[in-house]
Design a protein around this nucleic acid. Structure first.
Lengths: 156, 156
DNA sequence: TATTGTTATACTCTATAACTATA
DNA sequence: TATAGTTATAGAGTATAACAATA
């Protein structure tokens, strides 16, 4: 990597952002970090033909929880109608399949196919690599653990 | 408050979200917390006639940094063209005014008016109250400080 | 030649309502 | 009566390119 660069420009020199309520505002900071992380993930996923949202759904489908579409919607804060579109897309790619939930014939269980597992695996590497270069770059291993733990408490 | 309730449904019972890569994924957690915080702030701002984005710009305009539109764009990760629209909106409301930057005649400095300061003040109370009920509810005071500090390191 | 604000445009994300089939 | 998935639609958010004024 000689002219690597791209990554993400965090903009705004520190000397101009001194006094602002927003800097103490967790909501604002979360929004900004999310924007950085989202951009990072989006760029990393382009070569894989996935959007951040598709990647998230694929991740759930490839895990061991066998979620219904409704589970996916709640977990990712998506409207059920949005899940339909994403699952359609992933199904067209051959990455996931819909299976009838034996406990409730109305529900579709989403499962990653073999091809989907493989695609998720490689995409995940790219996403993690990009993340380590952007949002995690400034944190020590201990801080990363702490941040994860605190976010987890807030998120659920 | 007898039937308070509304607030935000975090959905998904813990017993179904056991094993998932995403739970260790800071990017995912940040996205989810941001969704919660954004919804919380949006609801709190409805009575004030402000959107989250307008509120953020108003906050910067009412601070002591006298930002240009470009500063606002970089700080909030907005495209400069989006800042135009928000400032137009706030100006129509009489909350901010554009002033020529003496150091650069191309640049507009955005300042909160007296009316804007008042509106920001009351809106801020609502936003903070809503936030304490949602994303900060699960954290101790010490944890809030730690979370803020870590997010700040990542955000800039 | 580069940058600030601006206009315009297209695309993605999000919110909402209604319908069907099952429960 | 309520819930899972689906369809449709409108609005908000975001990305991109081009232009005039100024640096």
């Amino acid at each position: 990597m000689t002219d690597s660069s791209p990554v993400i420009d965090l903009g705004v020199a520190p000397d101009r952002i001194d006094a602002t309520d927003l800097l103490d505002d967790i909501e604002f900071l979360v929004a900004r970090v999310r924007a950085i992380g989202s951009l990072s993930a989006r760029q990393a996923l382009v070569p894989h033909g996935l959007r951040v949202r598709s990647y998230a759904v694929l991740s759930l489908a490839c895990g061991s929880i066998s979620p219904t579409q409704r589970d996916v919607a709640e977990f990712l804060f998506l409207d059920p109608s949005q899940v339909v579109a994403v699952v359609d897309e992933l199904q067209t790619l051959g990455y996931v399949e819909r299976a009838q939930d034996p406990r409730d014939r109305r529900a579709n269980i989403i499962r990653g196919t073999e091809r989907g597992q493989a695609a998720y695996s490689t995409a995940k590497e790219s996403v993690i690599a990009a993340r380590d270069e952007t949002i995690l770059r400034a944190l020590s291993p201990e801080e990363r653990v702490t941040l994860t733990r605190l976010l987890l408490k807030v998120a659920f």
